[in-house]
């Protein structure tokens, strides 16, 4: 199991109000699988993904990545794990506005220990893979929303992570672009054996993944395997 959670919970306290965003989630994801998470807005998908990815500490429960209890790690070790093992794609544009496309793609390398190989060449290859070989030196404000998404995809792949966590990566794209991006994900999943966990509102996309988890009110209420 590359990802495993044990009774994962997250509650927020705002004044007297207690919001249980995630309530006791137990999931196991095998290496190389493409998992989708669906559910209504506010059902806790982003919160779950963030706890798995080491971005927000669970109130209860554990997250294992490759057998490592990640919330027991020091900040330094956890950051290193995010850097090396996990590629994030967010619900919104997440590029650094002051850096151009290729610099954004190379950015994760700046925080890693021991730079390996020719990072610039790899960044170029990834930008070509996402079809942006010709926009490498544009800053985010000069790119369309879809193009920014694709730069973020290239960035998520730069450190060759085992796991890609994608939160509605195609949320605001038109159907055609959404299809292209999905094709790209499936190709990366197939060809490089990367494990994908993707939140989506689009049932069509969910159907094309290996497993779909359905969330409601902070719990997983169904698990569907697709042939």
């Amino acid at each position: 199991m590359i990802i495993k959670t044990e009774h994962l919970c997250k509650t927020y306290k705002i004044g007297d109000q207690v919001i249980e965003a995630v309530k006791g989630v137990d999931i196991e994801i095998e290496r190389g699988k493409f998992v989708s998470i669906v559910g209504h807005s506010g059902s806790g998908k982003t919160t779950l993904l963030s706890m798995i990815g080491g971005l927000t500490r669970p109130t209860h429960g554990k997250v294992y990545i490759d057998g490592i209890n990640i919330w027991n790690l020091s900040d330094e070790k956890l950051s290193e794990l995010r850097n090396k093992k996990i590629g994030f794609m967010f619900q919104f544009s997440s590029l650094i506005p002051t850096l151009n496309a290729i610099e954004n793609v190379m950015l994760p390398v700046a925080f890693g220990k021991g730079v390996s190989g020719d990072v610039e060449r790899r960044a170029k290859e990834l930008l070509e893979l996402v079809g942006l070989g010709h926009r490498m030196h544009n800053v985010p404000s000069q790119l369309s929303g879809g193009e920014q998404r694709r730069v973020a995809i290239a960035r998520a792949l730069i450190n060759d992570p085992d796991i890609i966590l994608a939160d509605e990566p195609t949320g605001d794209l038109d159907r055609e672009t959404e299809d292209e991006v999905m094709e790209l994900f499936l190709k990366i999943n197939r060809d490089f054996g990367k494990t994908f966990v993707m939140v989506t509102h689009n049932p069509e996309l969910a159907k094309r993944t290996d497993i779909t988890l359905r969330m409601e009110n902070g719990s997983i209420i169904a698990r569907e395997e697709h042939g």
Binding site: G53, L55, D75, E76, L78, S79, E80, R82, N83, K84, F88, F90, S94, I96, P97, L107, P108, F111, G112, R155, N159
Partner: peptide, 15 residues
Amino acid sequence: KELGILRAIGANRRH
């Protein structure tokens, strides 16, 4: 937000 993104892609507190 940017600092959060930097953390997500691997920056630690000291960075």
